[in-house]
Design a protein around this nucleic acid. Structure first.
Length: 117
DNA sequence: TTCCTGACGATGA
DNA sequence: ATCATCGCCAGGA
């Protein structure tokens, strides 16, 4: 019996989920992890966004649980994400997105899509 | 192989 | 509200 702890790549599922987040709404890293069946692994989501090609995806709709943009404050990426959020009509309260108001609540259709892998 | 570093998050002081 | 601590763990050094 090989002791192999076969590495698993979760990026596909996570990115597929990300594509479902509607304009004007946001998800937190942790929420995305939960939806992908990876509870407690928010950091993995951050790693995936940083590592994979997200140019065709709404990467800017992923913010920290507290509503803040996780990219280092003031960096190019930070400005870019902030601008994109504003463009979608999200009203920031200071430097954060009011989560209660903009958090994505997946509808049944979205939930079902998650089930077929 | 060990050590360190994060696009995180919950909790407690 | 702010801050330190701890859990989590895939990669890089």
């Amino acid at each position: 019996m090989p002791h192999n702890g076969s590495k698993v790549d979760h990026s596909h599922k996570v990115l597929t989920l990300l594509a479902l987040v509607p304009p004007g709404q946001v998800v937190s890293y942790g929420q995305l992890a939960d939806l992908a069946g990876l509870p407690g692994r928010a950091r993995l989501i951050g790693r995936i966004l940083r590592t994979r090609d997200t140019s065709m995806l709404p990467w800017h709709r992923v913010v920290a649980a507290n509503g803040r943009i996780s990219l280092s404050r003031g960096s190019d990426g930070w400005h870019e994400q902030r601008q994109r959020l504003l463009t979608e009509g999200i009203l920031l309260k200071g430097d954060r997105v009011p989560m209660e108001q903009y958090r994505w609540r997946p509808d049944l259709a979205a939930i079902l899509m998650l089930m077929d892998q």
